[in-house]
Computed example of a mutant assay.
Amino acid sequence: MTATGGPEVLQLQTLPKPTIRQPGEVLIQLKGAGINPVDTKLRTRGTFYPDRSPTILGCDGAGIVDAVGEEVKNFKKGDEVYFCFGGIGGPEGNYREYAVVDHRFIAKKPKKLSFVEASAAPLVLITAWEALHDRAQIQPEHRVLIHGGAGGVGHVAIQLAKQTGAQVCTTVSSEEKGEFARSLGADHVINYRETDFVEAIMEWTDSKGVDVAFDTVGGETFAKSCGAVAMYGDLVTILQPDANMNWSTARARNLRFSLELMLTPMHQGLISALEHQTDILHCCAELFDSERLRLHLQQTFPLAEAAAAHRLLEQGGMMGKLALEVG
């Protein structure tokens, strides 16, 4: 993209093949690129680096190592990898055939996943893991509410929460999505279009509230969630709270709030945090390969049809993820 706007600003272009410039870098022949809501926001509003053009979107990628820098010891040509890096501005995104990434920020691809499935996984895995483990410090005895349990982040968050031994409740918008959430391990499902989720949570928890609520929706849902969290409980959100929000319920319940934006380490160049995110991908690869975690890919598109993928994502109502098939 060379300008912001609708999906039509995504244009197929031929650019020079990237090359390794630093001894710790890896050249990856991409086979898939994940599509995330942040991609559509950057396309519409502008990227983190508006002075760098053209922009290639796509934070997530998976592919085959094509070459390694002289200091890279943990990867070799032919290795299958996945990662979340790039895509927030400039030409380093992953809607492309080749990418160069620092070896510290890539992980071996789960063997149980295809390239395109693996490419759809990293951003949502890291987001859910950081929210539940790093922010809320989820425990086996916890009762957890996950909003949007059929969505990209939500459907992996349900599974990661269940892996800890927690009991999980989730909100969905239809019976089909409810069945999907149950298939992932959700203990209790609330159709928020038919039922007040705060009342349902209080009934589920004997009026105590959940220990942890994970908000992937924002707005009124975030504000209402304060009344569904137990005294001294945790509420984590991936969206920015409304400037006019009334915090009285949260204050009365002594809630602890956390904000989760997994792009911060990449944008700010926080190496240790990026390495931690790579460790998350290593852990999740083991979960995939032991069949304790799965990624639901609703639909794939060829690279040339990235604009069509954006249109579908912006329509809403999806289950799981979308991805581009590359090469």
Rank of each mutant, 00 (worst) to 15 (best):
G34V: 11
R294D: 01
R135N: 13
N36C: 02
K77S: 04
A131E: 14
L259C: 00
I126N: 01
G316I: 03
R253Q: 13
V156Q: 02
E71K: 04
D215V: 14
D196R: 13
Q159T: 12
S183T: 10
P37K: 12
M319H: 10
R143I: 09
P18R: 13
G6Y: 06
V100S: 05
L125H: 00
A128W: 06
T4M: 08
E220S: 10
V156L: 07
A186V: 04
A121W: 14
I56P: 00
K162G: 14
F85L: 05
L259G: 08
T4P: 03
P50R: 14
E275H: 03
E220R: 13
H103A: 15
P37A: 15
K321T: 04
A309L: 04
R104E: 11
F105P: 08
A230H: 11
G327Q: 05
A3V: 12
H133A: 10
F48D: 13
P16H: 07
K321Q: 07
G90H: 12
M202Y: 04
H147T: 08
I35Y: 11
P110I: 11
A150P: 05
G165W: 12
F257M: 15
I138V: 01
E117L: 15
G151Y: 06
E130T: 09
Q11H: 12
N191F: 02
G233K: 12
V116A: 14
V212S: 10
V9N: 07
H155S: 15
L123V: 12
